[in-house]
């Protein structure tokens, strides 16, 4: 059953040095506040997992939390490059970042396989590409029924998956709607999960066909209104596009980034 914790306690309890940590949310409901808490708690040697490692991973990488990243598209959506990610890959700052990169479909199916309790998933992809040459988690497999040559991708089981959702009820069930990305699969794939939520409600009061994650597949829930800022939570907030654009300048130079980190993450403390 999900345990209601402060964000600080949730990260202390469930995110450890060296863990494989998935942070999901496809441009919507990105768990930024949890990412900042990981930075504040100075976790190290993490393997970050995220389809679209945008600003949240740029911040974790620049802060020195990660030594590996498993991903499929790493940019600042609608703006440009991730400068901290590029600095790590191109110059090894603050240290080298090992990569295991996939296509969106490939990484998605790695979560699907793990959520399904299977060792791998199969899809029509990767043939002839350089991407498959650089990943040890892609292989070729022959269909036993048709003989067709297909890609196999290894199941990906994070130690912990962190997502942000609109609501939890008092029994610890989680409800999210709008663009739901790969959140369900990434939570079901993981050994543990933390969900930060906009609101805690008495009960889910309408019949919308929302995504529900029952209390018994969630480890911890933390009430963090605005915890996905600068991304957005449908029904609660709008995307802060100025932040995404400003990040281009804030992240470009190491000293400017470190100043941002000091004032906006470390000094901010664990407020919730």
């Amino acid at each position: 059953m999900a345990e209601f914790l402060s964000l600080k306690s949730a990260v202390e309890t469930h995110v450890h040095d060296g863990d494989v940590v998935a942070l999901e949310g496809f441009t919507h409901l990105i768990p930024f506040a949890a990412g900042h808490e990981i930075i504040r708690q100075r976790r190290r040697n993490l393997t970050l997992v995220r389809l679209t490692p945008d600003l949240i991973c740029d911040q974790l990488i620049g802060a020195g939390c990660a030594t590996k990243m498993i991903f499929s598209w790493g940019g600042n959506p609608g703006v440009g490059s991730l400068h901290r990610f590029r600095d790590a890959v191109e110059h090894g700052w603050p240290h080298a970042l090992e990569l295991d990169e996939h296509t969106h479909a490939g990484l998605t199916n790695r979560f699907v396989a793990a959520a399904s309790g299977l060792p791998f998933a199969v899809l029509r992809a990767y043939a002839g590409t350089d991407t498959s040459q650089h990943s040890s988690t892609v292989a070729r497999v022959t269909c036993p029924f048709t003989g067709e040559d297909l890609a196999a991708v290894a199941a990906l089981r994070p130690d912990v998956t962190i997502i942000h959702a609109q609501q939890a009820d008092r029994a610890g069930n989680v409800r999210l709607w709008g663009i739901t990305g790969v959140q369900k699969e990434s939570v079901l794939a993981a050994s543990r999960s933390i969900v930060t939520v906009e609101e805690i409600v008495d009960g889910f009061d309408d019949d919308r066909n929302a995504m529900i994650l029952p209390s018994w597949v969630v480890s911890a829930i933390a009430h963090v209104p605005g915890g996905c800022h600068p991304s957005y939570a449908a029904g609660y907030s709008d995307r802060d596009n100025d932040y995404y654009e400003a990040w281009d300048d804030l992240s470009r130079e190491r000293d400017v980034f470190e100043d941002w980190l000091e004032h906006h993450v470390y000094e901010n403390g664990s407020v919730r």
Binding site: F26, T27, H28, L51, P77, G78, H104, A105, T108, N109, F111, V112, L123, R124, G178, I179, T180, G181, V182, Q183, K184, E185, M211, Y232, A234, D238, R239, N241, Y244
Partner: peptide, 29 residues
Amino acid sequence: LPLSIGDGELATTADFVISVPEIFNYWLQ
């Protein structure tokens, strides 16, 4: 014009919104 691939404008004006595994496995592939 949407600002990103997951712009809220896309979700609120869509015929329907589905998960990422579904879009790739059932619709694209």
